[in-house]
Each structure stands twice: as C-alpha cells, then as structure tokens.
Write a protein that binds this DNA or RNA. Sequence first.
DNA 1: GGGGTCTGGTAAAGGCGTTTACTAAAGGCC
DNA 2: GGCCTTTAGTAAACGCCTTTACCAGACCCC
Lengths: 345, 345
Amino acid sequence: MRKPTLSEVARRAGVSPTTVSRWLNGSIHLPVGTAERIREAVRDLDYRPNAQARRLSRGRAEAIGVVVPDISNPFFALIAGEAERVAVDSGYDLVIWSSRNLIERELACFDRLAAGFIDGLILITNHEDDGRLADRVARNPGRVVIVDEDVRGAVAPRVLVENEAGGHMATAALTAAGHRRIAHVGGPRGVMSAAERAAGWRRALAEAGVVAPAAWHFRTEYEMAPAIVAAEGLFALDPAPTAVFAGSDAIALGVMVKARERGVSIPGDLSLVGFDGLPIVDLLGPPLTSVAQPIDELGRLAAERLVLMIDGEAPPVDTLRLPVRLVERASVAAPKRGEGPQRAA
Amino acid sequence: MRKPTLSEVARRAGVSPTTVSRWLNGSIHLPVGTAERIREAVRDLDYRPNAQARRLSRGRAEAIGVVVPDISNPFFALIAGEAERVAVDSGYDLVIWSSRNLIERELACFDRLAAGFIDGLILITNHEDDGRLADRVARNPGRVVIVDEDVRGAVAPRVLVENEAGGHMATAALTAAGHRRIAHVGGPRGVMSAAERAAGWRRALAEAGVVAPAAWHFRTEYEMAPAIVAAEGLFALDPAPTAVFAGSDAIALGVMVKARERGVSIPGDLSLVGFDGLPIVDLLGPPLTSVAQPIDELGRLAAERLVLMIDGEAPPVDTLRLPVRLVERASVAAPKRGEGPQRAA
DNA sequence: GGGGTCTGGTAAAGGCGTTTACTAAAGGCC
DNA sequence: GGCCTTTAGTAAACGCCTTTACCAGACCCC
C-alpha cells in the first residue's frame, strides 16, 4: 500500500486534483456535497500531501534553522526551545545544527539555506568572524537573524542584550558589598559581548575609584572546561582578588570548580557573580548571583522576526537590545576583614 | 539574479543536464576536459542543487527528526546533540520537536514522518502511551527508534538503559551507608523506567531486610517543578526517612529545593541519590551522588540505528539495554546516630 | 567484416502538488 | 431575449532534479 497521491483522492471524490488541492489549502469554496466527498476520500485513503512535492511547488521548505555553538549547553537549548515553539506555531519546523563553534560548520548551514533546505536561519555564534559569516549573511538578505552575539559588519536584524549594563550591574553589586579587588574572567578577544561586559566591569570599578589593572582581566571561551584552566590565573594574583565577575555562568562554574579544588570557599573567601541566569544556578553550592538574560525572549523574538521576514513583512534591519537584570543569590558576601574597601595594589 | 538551475549549468558546460547531475552525484565517470567544464560552470554560476527538487526526485527528505519532551532539559539536549552529530556526519539534518509531553504534539511528528518531511524519527517520550503512539510506530515500520523510555507494544528498535539495576545500585549505596528508611520519589505511574527503577529500589531494600511500605513511594513527573510539590510528602512521613532515592536528577533537584526550604540539610539530615548523571550535578550544593546514564551513547546509538534502517540495512527490531553506573559524590552520608540500621517503623 | 565491448554521453520519464488562467453552466435582472 | 454575474469547477504549466534506458561511435579481436 503505497502512499496515496492527490490524483487518487481526486478520482475517488470525482473531482480534479486542482479542486482537491485548492480545497485542502482553503483557496476555494465548495458546496457541502463536494466538500464532503473530498473529506471522505481524504479520510478513507489517509491522504497526506507529499511534503517534498509541496515544498517544490511552493518554493518553500517550511522550515527554519538555528545554528548554535552547542545544543547541549542549556543557554542555547533554552533559546532553541523557545524558537521551536514559535516556529511550530507559525507553521515551520525547526532544524538545529550544533556548530561546535567551528566556522566551517556555520558556513555549511548557509549552504543549506542557499539550497533551500530551510527558509531562514537564526545565527548564534560565539567567536570572532573573519568576514566570511558577514559575507554569507549579505548574500542571503532577509533570511537571517543574528542572536545574542554580534557578527561584525553583517547586515541583518539582531537580537542582543545590554551587555555593558549587565557587566556594570554585576560589578556594582560587588563594589556595593565592599569589594574593590574584583577580577573579571570574561569571554574571548574579538567577541562583542565579551568586550561590552568587560567595559561595564571597568566602568563600575572606576565609579568605585578603582582603575582596573590589565592583570585582573582574564579571557577564555564561554565554556566551563576552558574556564577551569583560566581560573588558575585568578589564584596566582597577589594580592588575591576578593571577588570575581564571570562573563558567563559557565565560566562562573569553572571558577567554582577551581575554587573548590583550591579550598577557596565561596562566598567566604571569594565572591562570585555570573552572567546568563541559567535556571540551574539557583541550585548550585552556593546559589550563584548572576545577571539574568531574558533567554526565552531572545529565542522568541528572533524566531518571530525571522518568520515575519520570510513571510515578506520585512521588519527593519535593526538591533534589539534586551534588558538584563541582576538576580542576587548567595555567592556574594562582604570581603573579609582587612580586605574591605581599599585601593588596588 | 535568480538561483541558477541544473540546465543553466549544463548549457554553459555544453553538456546535457543529465550529465551534470550524474557527475555531481558521482554516478558517472567523465574525461577531464568535460569534468573541468562542468566544474567551471558550477563555480561561475555558484550553482547549488535545489534541495526541494532533489528531495522530490530522490523521495527522501535527507533529514531525521527527534521528538523530546523538552529540549531545554539538559538530558534531552545532550541526547539531541549527539544525535545531531551522527545525523550530520551521515548526510542528514536533524529536525527537533519539543513535545511538552503532549501526545498530540508527538502524533503531529508522526504526521511529519508520514508526509515525508523527515525520513525517520527518534522518539523520546515521558508518559504512558494510550496506544496511539504504538499504532503510529506500527504504521511506519523501519522508520522509528524508541529511546530511553519504552512505548509499550510498539514494534521498533529500542535503546534503553538498565533501570532496575540503576535503582538497585542507587539504593544499595544508601543501605551500605547505613540507611534503612529510604524513600523513593520516582517517575509517574505507567511509565516503564519509573516502574523498573522502583523495582530496583524495592529489591535493594529487601536485601537489607526492609520491606518498603507503599507510603515511602512517591510518584511525580520527571521534572523539577512537580517534584518540589511531591517532596512535601517526604517531610510529612513519620518517622522521617533518612535517605531518598530520586528517580531522576530533576526530581533530586526538587527534593533539594524543598529540603532547603525546610532547613533540612543534605547530607546531614537527609542523604540523596539521583538518576541520570547530568554534568551539572557535580556542581550542586552538595554535589549529587547519581546513577549515570550513558547519555551520549543513547543519542549516538539511536541515531546510528535509525540511519542504518533508513538506508535499508535494517537492524533487527531489538532492545538495547545500556549499563548505568553509580557516581558517588557528597550527597550521601551515614544516618545520624540513633537513625542507623533498624527495622522499618 | 561481423560481432562484441568500451567510452561518453543523452532523451525522456518520472516525482507530486500548486497555481494561473480559463470555461461551462446556472441564475438574476430588465 | 440579451447581458452580466456568480458558482463550480478544470486544464495545463510549473518547480527542478534524478534515473532508467538507450545510443552513437570508436576500437578490438579473430
């Protein structure tokens, strides 16, 4: 029993394939009798339009894609989850690619876009672009939305967050608790969000009368494993920092791992603030104070804009900057006596 | 500048479309001169076969799907991530659907399968089937692989884990530490993995000379939010349990939240063992002893079997049972004095 | 020189909906 | 009776690639 085709349904209903197609797609009004015969034929044969033929005819894949550095990272999984919800509600399926942060794999996704596998792409990167991504975006006008991390020079709508403000509020929470020697373990060089968060850190320190020495600024990938290594440097500083602003929750986890290894207690010996606000940080030992990004909103807005663009109602090529907010938990305390407000060494 | 078609490439190269198609797909050998002309034409026009037409011709979507209850849950995200890797390496794209554990949404994925949107489906459920899923699986022979949770009566390969053994080793770790009043907060009724893990719990208790009273067995969804509520009951027991075996890490998190709320310290007042072995449990306060599932393997094996089946090399419709292992961390301690080995109340 | 085998291709038939343009018939109006 | 409108459809083109079946010519062997 092969799959039934439109013609078979039409024959059974005693009408032409055109009529069935148009009726199924709601582009024709038919008298109840005819409609009923078609309905029955469809039901009897368990007919379902062939997706391939339909896509070829319509010139649409009825799917959108999202590239993330790593789908098993909860931050990206949350964004993808929300994008999936919007996509399905809008009649699209969501294809997910994990780029492992490799530009070649990201470029491969653009090939899929060019080939029509998907109608549009949500692009989430985590590294500096060498120009190739911006070029691909330019070649696919109206089909790409950039999320969370900038792709410099690309012409596309962006949905980003207020990184500088976030870096500032994270650090200000620490200066308010009395800290002055606040190190920053941030994202990699050349990455916009990392630069902005670091700028916020620097500004908050300056407001507390501290000029951040370069040695207090560590850079690493936004992931836990490399952050564990980077955190080494933290404990080599002399005098030691009393607090750390981590550029992501994953980095904060890395700092926590290293601190535990070293017998450094948080927040007793070291206060810590993260960035992202993953649901899980509430359950860490100790619960992590973190700058919460509106993660769901990122996914939702990105998918909504992409769907709008594909459907031809082009929104302006602009940049949305979503607000972040500080969620205070238990990983920040006052510095120990003798470690209170003071100048940088 | 429209997208170039195969014919345009062919014209430019001075051959027939057939030749170009066959050469591109490697099903013909051509003298270097001809090959070079085609290569040039493809490059000059930046030709890329239209994915829709190709899929229609081949009768393949070149994509597989995975339905998970919730993609933002790290357990499923990890499985999906691994499946994505295998899929891409095998020439397929991965379409992800979040079912929110709603059977209607799961059924919708089977519609996608029937319509040819995808060539095969990895099915991960989290609830009891009312027969509809098994029916859909039966109607799509050789196109479905069932992962992690059984769908009763379905005829398809399964990749599951040794739930009973896992429940046993979790509970045995607690009896070995001296506990006897060990409660179980497990998954919902009618769900195979929940029943098996509970059976392991019961067996380990029996081996320690304890017949588990029904009152010690709590059932909840495999998620944190409902587990928080379910954990209420735990603290209403009298005498209170000295340890809990949670049917999933998410449930363990729920127990931890409730314990914290109640001022019950873990493992001081209550020992706790989870199930799943998510990467994150290592960083909780306290790090959670948990039965680790081979999560990557689940995703990898499922995707590999599905791809094999689609490519026609049908593996037997069998059930793989992957081993689990206990990873001991800091959430288990000996019961307080006076709470040691003793009979159930 | 008859028959066989390579080499290097090609023509044409799918695959299956969607959509545009068009028509036949019925009904309404004056 | 003539003209217009509405209703209820339909024929045919289209989207673009893949694949099967087949062919012409060159070359070889005996």
